[in-house]
């Protein structure tokens, strides 16, 4: 009987911890609304449709990384026939601002995993250190 108590108690504790974020939000009525993202330059089109980019940008970036680093292939032909340089810093950040775009969404969704910026440069942030 004692064992059963421990098992059920342990399971209950686990469920409680697991559901903590949801419970906390319910108790404190925390507002959770997706960040409003803005683009630095309007009018230009992205290398892929918005829906695809929203769900799969990491796959595209990972593929670009493999293409450029491992195969020396830097030319990306987009869905609309336009040709882009496969470059996070030069192509993506040409329209998207890291702080206003990447960081806000990643902070909101709690995805801090990829360490892109420990090596790749953000031209806006690095201006103080950029070469003349």
């Amino acid at each position: 009987m004692r064992e059963r108590l421990i098992i059920v108690g342990g399971l209950a504790l686990f469920l409680l911890l697991f559901a903590y974020p949801v419970l906390r939000a319910a108790v404190y009525h925390t507002q959770t609304s997706a960040p409003q993202l803005r683009l630095t330059s309007q009018g230009s089109t992205c290398v892929a449709p918005t829906d695809y980019m929203r769900t799969s940008h990491m796959r595209l970036l990972s593929q670009w990384r493999t293409d450029v680093v491992r195969h020396g292939d830097r030319r990306f032909v987009a869905f609309n026939g336009k040709v882009y340089d496969k470059s996070l810093t030069r192509t993506c950040l040409g329209c998207h601002n890291k702080q206003q775009f990447c960081d806000r969404c990643h902070a909101y969704s709690g995805v801090s995993g990829p360490h892109c910026w420990s090596c790749h440069n953000d031209p806006q942030a690095a201006t103080a250190k950029v070469m003349p």
């Binding site: 360490h115 090596c119 950029v130 070469m131």
Partner: peptide, 14 residues
């Protein structure tokens, strides 16, 4: 340890 950064080339990580 970088005074200036060339934005066209990545830096490295630890």
């Amino acid at each position: 340890a970088l005074q200036q950064v060339n934005p066209d080339f990545p830096t490295r990580s630890l």
